[in-house]
Write a protein that binds this DNA or RNA. Structure first.
Lengths: 233, 233
DNA sequence: CAGTGGTCTAGACCACTGG
DNA sequence: CAGTGGTCTAGACCACTGG
């Protein structure tokens, strides 16, 4: 397979950004410099940069340069980590607290509470296949997400969002009244192999959280992923 | 303001497609031909075509050519019509019932109940600018969506999903108990001019509805639109 | 002002589709 | 096979940012 220069360059720059060698806000070398160091034409450098721009990783200003996009939360980890990113951006302190950690016949089952500055805002239950979960400690799952911990290439997750009333456990762990409104998200995370690796349930007090979805009107491709549906009744 | 050739060309091609001069599936003239007829370089033609590809209007196959994308379902109406589509697919009968229709100082305000086989599943309030709404009748809004009725090119909508408890009006119109869980969606629909044209609130009984979102893990482009966020507290 | 990205040209070679 | 899009080069001129 032939190497495609602009993709190689885009991947290389992306890695530098992900690794933190290029921090948010940092200005990249000029197109001319990059063309020189990668030994390609400026057009090829631009094509690479445009790939990254399409992904929201970098942006440009004419007469100024290309720079690493800062705040626009570019997390591959999905909704929850998006929140944690928002929190750290706001200077608040995100925290995970493990409520329970144990195995049933087929899964490692972990229940955690997520807090922001000590305020609990999510109660998360994760079911992880036992063979994958056997290497994880309670400390592991308190300090990192399953996406970070598992040696799995995740492809996508399907989230189903519903509403419910706070039950006794919600009330106790999230410090809300029994019967107050909750957003409930069930997430199924699928690896690039097409295997459903993780299932998790996330319960949020409605007064603390909302879900934002952007729906393009034109052309179905990107629009289909989000949609309300009637549940079987 | 300087003319930007590739945009002019993209706009011209788009118009031909929208007007139907180029039907779905039709193959465009080759890049070389287009370059000749527009009297630009092939690179500029490609740039124009890539703009249209990003919009999902055209696609290409190497060695074959560029062709008009088969109308990927005018599902452009967003989540609600998705539901109505599902209903008709299931052979159920969707219905809209206008609860109130009137003007405040600046808006036409319409409250409707959506039903499936006579079962109410959504209470929708729409705020439409008075100048646009002045031509609409109560019968109009009962028989069609605002997207169908308004002479506006919609670009996208941003939806914010939350949870709440059913209030007295919800209970009466949706036939649920007061205090039962509800999914509440606020939608802001923006035209291609960048103007926020419609604002609407959709209230669904939680036991009847759920929201499905697909989150790709790789590459930011399609992933950013959906995300949970903490509300200001 | 010198330097940057935005646009554009006129070429080139290649991988790929269809007949 | 001739024709197509995909990639890439080495230039060019311009509008724009900052100092």
């Amino acid at each position: 397979m032939r190497e495609i220069r602009y993709r190689t360059i885009a991947a290389d720059l992306r890695r530098q950004i992900v690794d933190g060698d290029l921090a948010p806000g940092a200005v990249l070398p000029s197109e001319a410099e990059l063309a020189g160091s990668y030994d390609v034409s400026r057009v090829t450098v631009r094509k690479a940069l445009e790939v990254l721009r399409d992904d929201g990783v970098v942006a440009s200003r004419q007469g100024y340069g290309w720079f690493v996009e800062g705040d626009t939360v570019r997390q591959s980890l999905g909704a929850l980590s998006t929140i944690e990113g928002q929190l750290t951006d706001q200077g608040r302190v995100p925290e995970r607290r493990v409520v329970s950690f144990g195995f049933d016949r087929e899964h490692l089952v972990v229940v955690r509470v997520n807090l922001a500055d000590g305020l609990p805002f999510a109660l998360v239950t994760v079911w992880c296949p036992a063979d994958l979960g056997s290497s994880l400690s309670r400390d592991d799952v308190e300090s990192a997400t399953f996406y970070e911990l598992l040696p799995v290439d995740f492809d996508h997750a399907t989230q189903t969002i519903g509403a419910a009333l706070a039950d006794d456990r919600d009330a106790e762990l999230l410090e809300v009244p029994v019967g107050s409104p909750m957003l409930v998200v069930e997430r199924r995370s699928v690896s690039t192999d097409g295997v459903e690796v993780l299932r998790s349930e996330h319960r949020f007090p409605a007064h603390l959280t909302e879900f934002v979805v952007d729906l393009p009107f034109q052309e179905g491709a990107e629009l289909s992923p989000a949609g309300l549906r009637l549940v079987q009744s």
